[in-house]
Structures are given as C-alpha cells and as structure tokens.
Amino acid sequence: MNYWLVKSEPDAYSWDDFVKLGRDHWDGVRNYAARKHMMAMQTGDLVLFYHSGGAKEVVGIAKVVQEHYPDPTTDDDRWVVVDLVPEKKLDKPVTLQEIKADDRLSGMPLVRIPRLSVQPVEKEEFDIILKKG
C-alpha cells in the first residue's frame, strides 16, 4: 500500500463537499509531477486530504477506489483522474505549522515542495500525522 496527500482550496472544494458526494474523481490536476503521482496511485491506497489556502491543514483520510483514467473535464488526453472516497475525518486537523515543527516530517514534499497538489507520503509520516489528528 502507498500513501499520498492531495490538496484542495476549501472554498472551492472542501472535505465536507467531498463527504456529501461520497465518491468523486480527483480532477483538474495540470502539473506533470502531480500527474505522475496520480498515475502511481493504486486501489486501496490511503490519501491525506489537505485544505490549502488560508486553512493549511490535513483534515481527513480518503481511499483510492479507482486507478487513473482520462480526466473527463478536459479533451487533453495528457491529464488523468483517480476516484477517491472519504474514509475518516480527523478528530483534530493537523496544521502545516504542526507538521513543520516536527523534525520527523521535515522531508515531506508538503514542507519541501509546498505547491505540489498531489504528493507521496511515507508510511511513517502518514502514521505521525494520524496520531496528531
């Protein structure tokens, strides 16, 4: 199993919006590195759902339920989506400030490459964030 983090502006698409849908494709990714990560996602992988923008916090856990396929929001066949379902809202959001303050998380792309919208997470990092949340 692999672990990931996806980012969304809560004003545009929040955790609560995602939960209301129950299942959704993760679309609109137009970055080649993020696309590469989406193409590596496998059914059953777990995903941290991160509110970017003003909030800057991990708020929930999702699961990949369908591997990559063409993004239905564009005619450009270079872009893909994956289907996710919400698994669990964290009891307490884990802020970017908390993540940056923990030396064990200093290697995360979230800290090193903050603009990347889809990124891998090591199992140890995933577990640390879950304990914090």
Score class of each variant (00 low, 15 high):
Met1Tyr: 07
Met1Asn: 12
Leu5Arg: 00
Leu5Thr: 00
Leu5Gly: 00
Ser8Gly: 03
Ser8Glu: 06
Ser8Met: 05
Glu9Ala: 04
Glu9Ile: 01
Glu9Val: 04
Pro10Ala: 06
Trp15Pro: 10
Trp15Gly: 08
Asp16Met: 12
Asp16Lys: 15
Asp17His: 04
Lys20Trp: 00
Lys20Phe: 03
Lys20His: 05
Leu21Arg: 15
His25Asp: 13
Trp26Ile: 04
Trp26Ala: 02
Gly28Lys: 00
Val29Asn: 01
Arg30Pro: 07
Asn31Trp: 00
Tyr32Leu: 15
Ala33Gln: 15
Ala33Ser: 12
Arg35Met: 12
Arg35Ile: 14
His37Lys: 11
His37Asp: 13
Met39Val: 12
Ala40Gln: 13
Met41Arg: 04
Gln42Tyr: 01
Thr43Val: 15
His51Leu: 03
His51Gly: 06
Gly53Trp: 01
Gly54Leu: 09
Lys56Tyr: 02
Lys56Gly: 02
Glu57Leu: 07
Glu57Gly: 09
Val58Arg: 06
Ile61Lys: 01
Lys63Pro: 08
Lys63His: 08
Glu67Leu: 05
His68Asp: 09
His68Cys: 12
Asp71Met: 05
Asp71Phe: 05
Pro72His: 05
Asp75Ala: 14
Asp77Cys: 09
Trp79Arg: 10
Val80Glu: 07
Val80Asp: 10
Val81Arg: 00
Val81Cys: 11
Val81Ser: 05
Asp83Lys: 00
Asp83Leu: 02
Leu84Trp: 11
Leu84Ala: 10
Pro86His: 05
Pro86Gln: 01
Lys89Met: 12
Asp91Thr: 15
Pro93Ser: 06
Pro93Phe: 05
Val94Gly: 08
Thr95Gln: 09
Thr95Cys: 11
Gln97Gly: 10
Gln97Val: 14
Gln97Trp: 08
Gln97Ile: 13
Asp103Tyr: 10
Arg104Ile: 10
Ser106Val: 07
Ser106Glu: 13
Met108Asn: 04
Leu110Thr: 00
Ile113Asp: 04
Pro114Tyr: 03
Arg115Pro: 00
Val118Trp: 01
Gln119Trp: 02
Glu122Phe: 02
Glu122Tyr: 06
Glu122Val: 12
Glu124Lys: 14
Glu125Thr: 12
Phe126His: 01
Phe126Cys: 03
Asp127Trp: 03
Ile129Pro: 09
Leu130Ser: 07
Leu130Lys: 14
Lys131Thr: 09
Lys132Ala: 11
Lys132Pro: 05
